[in-house]
Amino acid sequence: MPGADSFNARVDRLRRRFLARAVAVAAAPLPLLFTRSASAQDDTIVPAIREFTKGAAVRRGRVKLELPRLADNGNSVALKVSVSSPMTAADFVRGIHLFSEKNPRPVIARFFLGPQSGRAEVNTRIRLAGTQRVVAVAELSDGSFWSDVADVSVTLSACLDGT
């Protein structure tokens, strides 16, 4: 039956197209930090991180970013970031940069440290405009970049309600 044939052929074509796209999506070189599907917010955070690293590879690990899983108020969220480093003159952390996925400005803060810091750890309080991921990227004295990501659910967002 020509009708059935053309229908099967069409299904086949669609299936092939779907598979081809699925493979293409799976193989796409997503940024290392974002193993989840790319979201619209990545459009601001990824360029901000690239600008800092100047395109160098960012590896997961060595950095520990501690944020509450649930923040009742996005206007002030306690943040602790630490990097495992001996902090000697030969091997130390140059800087720790914090990036937000959803804030109007993706760069939250930059901290510059050195061997005189003794310990690569900074505590502060940040604003979060909504539930999002926060990324900490550390630059080490050997020029390598390490990162950690924290998910925060924010009940009351900063910035948005004009208060």
């Binding site: 939250i108 440290l113 604003r127 979060l128």
Partner: peptide
């Protein structure tokens, strides 16, 4: 100089920083 911070609007009001030094 032992520590420097560059901050933006992403830091909460009444900025608080804690860091270490030898």
């Amino acid at each position: 100089e032992i520590f420097r911070a560059e901050m933006g609007t992403g830091i909460a009001a009444n900025p608080y920083l804690a860091f270490f030094a030898v």
